[in-house]
Computed example of a mutant assay.
Amino acid sequence: METFENLVRAEFAPKTTYLNTASNSLLPARTVAALQDAVRLRAQGRPLDSLYADVEACRAAYARLAGVPVERVAAGATVALHTSLIAASLPPGAEVLTAEDDFTSVLNPFHTRGDLKVRAVPLERIADSVRPGTALVAVSAAQSADGRITDLPALREAARAHGARTYVDFSQTAGWLPMEADAFDYSASITYKWLLGPHGAAFLVVPEDLGDLPPVQASWAAGEDPWASCYGPVAELAHSARRFDSSPALFTYAGLRASLELIEELGVDAVRAHDLALADRFRAGLAALGHEPVPVPAPGSAIVSVPGLGRLQPELSASGIEVSNRAGNLRASFHLYNTAADVDRLLEALPG
């Protein structure tokens, strides 16, 4: 049986100290190979049936990672598109509770409706801020800007107590932190960060009864029989969450299938232990240098942000260390292909 380290070493050979998974992941070698194979199919004029099979394999893999039946998973392109479906389902005047400065894709479709009451509170107060009349709580599982983790169990209980629905964006945790999508009404995630996939795919988990979502973007891909739904109005929408699908970016799913297979081989628990150990090493090193990162509750986050140091990002990039400048923070994010040497190189490059 291959070890975690051997599996990772076989898939990744970065040319930089890459600590920026919260923006985009590195692609595994198997994913690059799958993308190349998919392109060759198209270039050679061969049937693309296997690429459509990749879409369904990815849907099934994501359902396993999310802990829900595959019938509850819709495949699309962006979290913003999925958020838009949820926003479209709400009646005029409905209250949507959000976290201040959450990622735009989780928020903006509710604001652009123009007739919803969108209320923003500090992340730490979001569970306590659910009240009678709150229709929906929408929040990221981890904040993109600084890695703070939402207390999702507390949020779930508060929402249930007040009859509010819940929508969680797992984009910054899916792949390193176990998902419990069944605990929430709706959830979504893109796949090009911690799930190691190419750009162009995102998944939406809906309730067993499909919720109140209007399939306003329904195309031929949303038909119960897609290939019989190509002309004229779709006669019969899919009986599953596939009715919320958008036409798939086939090359993306060909690569993503290989990426999700790797995540499942490694195991999310093992990835989490690896990522958090590196984040803890970085936090300890920051303390020794006299820097204080944005605090996160135990057991921690794979994203570490240091206020005031975001200005160093161009200089670090020029030296071969890739991090992000987010809201003035230097944001480092640690994933399965990173090592203790990567952490130490970043620490050596910081002032203090």
Rank of each mutant, 00 (worst) to 15 (best):
V294R: 10
P314E: 12
S219H: 13
K15G: 14
A221T: 04
L262M: 01
R119F: 07
P109E: 06
K117Q: 13
G76V: 03
A332V: 01
N325F: 06
I321K: 09
A159S: 07
T78P: 06
D49H: 07
E5S: 12
E124P: 08
W227L: 12
Q313L: 09
A66Y: 02
V234H: 03
G45S: 02
T173E: 09
S23K: 15
E264Y: 00
Q143V: 06
F203Y: 07
P233Q: 08
D102K: 12
H274W: 05
S319I: 10
L266R: 06
A298T: 09
R242D: 11
S301R: 03
A34G: 01
T150D: 04
P226E: 07
T3Q: 08
F4S: 13
A61V: 04
V32F: 05
A57H: 07
D344G: 06
V68I: 10
V139R: 03
A87S: 13
G255Q: 04
R30G: 13
P132T: 07
V73W: 04
T21I: 09
L195C: 02
P314N: 13
D342M: 03
C230S: 11
L262T: 04
A222L: 01
R119S: 10
G200W: 04
I321V: 12
L330C: 06
E71F: 09
E261P: 04
A13G: 08
D342F: 03
D49E: 10
S259N: 01
A158E: 02
N20S: 14
L350M: 01
D128A: 15
S89P: 09
A222G: 00
A63K: 03
R156T: 14
L196Q: 09
D128K: 14
A235V: 11
V55S: 02
